[in-house]
């Protein structure tokens, strides 16, 4: 294995919301839901992204326009190239024959999209069901509107679906139904609350964590979270592992290596 980016041509671009575009490539990646790739723009920078679509020989990454790097990606056109290396990290472990809930906050939904696709494919409908919760600040920020069978929406301002947070909505659902497993990705404060809630209800839970990633293959130590390397030991961690990670929900490490409070 050689950890170097290979250049991939953008073959399609799809707008998911005013701030989010999905860029498609013809690439053969051996990708498992929950893993990530490093996306490189020569002479600019390189950042981690999840694969949000896998369709035959097509893969897609969904990118929220947020800073210099994501702005540069958004300015790319069909036919332009981006460097891609990976996939990296440990993906989700699926619990197919059960009722599961997939909880995505903001662009965190992108990290869960291929998981939902996979679960819908493998879950025996007589034995289990997949419920998706997507939370956003406002209706315009909702992505993958028509993509999933059973997706419940919530927005902070009430412009779409349930008015409130994903955690409120999950709490609400748990009054009526039982989940054996929850998968989640989003802002870490939200993840922390989802994990707390799952702990109270005795539900298995897996979380996709985000940290500043440099190498992606476990040598530089930049993405440490309480002794766990998010890039290779994660980015998916289960509730038992998270209970031993004191920094989860509290501390993150910047690109200098300084600790900052969430």
């Amino acid at each position: 294995m050689i950890e170097q980016p290979m250049m991939a041509k953008i073959c399609d671009i799809q707008e998911e919301s005013p701030g989010v575009k999905t860029f498609f490539f013809k690439l053969n990646l051996n990708f498992e839901p929950g893993q990530f790739v490093m996306v490189w723009i020569p002479l600019l920078d390189e950042k981690p992204f999840t694969i949000s679509y896998i369709q035959k020989d097509l893969v897609g990454i969904s990118v929220l326009k947020r800073g210099v790097f994501t702005n540069a990606i958004h300015s790319k056109k069909i036919g332009d190239m981006l460097g891609i290396r990976g996939p990296y990290g440990r993906g989700f472990s699926l619990k197919p024959d059960s009722n599961s809930c997939v909880v995505g906050g903001g662009i965190g939904m992108a990290s869960l999209a291929t998981l939902v696709d996979r679960l819908n494919l493998v879950v025996d409908k007589r034995r289990g069901h997949v419920t998706v919760i997507q939370g956003a600040r406002t209706a315009a920020e909702i992505i993958y509107q028509k993509r999933f069978r059973d997706m419940k929406l919530c927005t902070e301002d009430g412009t779409a679906g349930f008015r409130g947070t994903t955690v409120d909505l999950l709490k609400d659902l748990l009054k009526k139904q039982r989940f054996q497993k929850v998968y989640t990705c989003g802002p870490e404060k939200m993840l922390y609350k989802v994990v707390e809630l799952c702990g109270e209800h005795g539900i298995e839970c897996e979380v996709s964590l985000e940290r500043y990633i440099k190498c992606g293959f476990g040598v530089c130590g930049q993405c440490d979270c309480s002794g766990q390397r998010v890039c290779i030991d994660g980015p998916i961690f289960n509730i038992q592992e998270l209970s031993r990670m004191e920094d989860f929900g509290k501390i993150t490490i910047t690109k200098t290596g300084a600790r900052v409070i969430h």
Binding site: E3, E46, K47, C215
Partner: peptide, 10 residues
Amino acid sequence: EGHKNPTVIT
């Protein structure tokens, strides 16, 4: 902050 990525490749 160090250099920008990529910083480590093999």
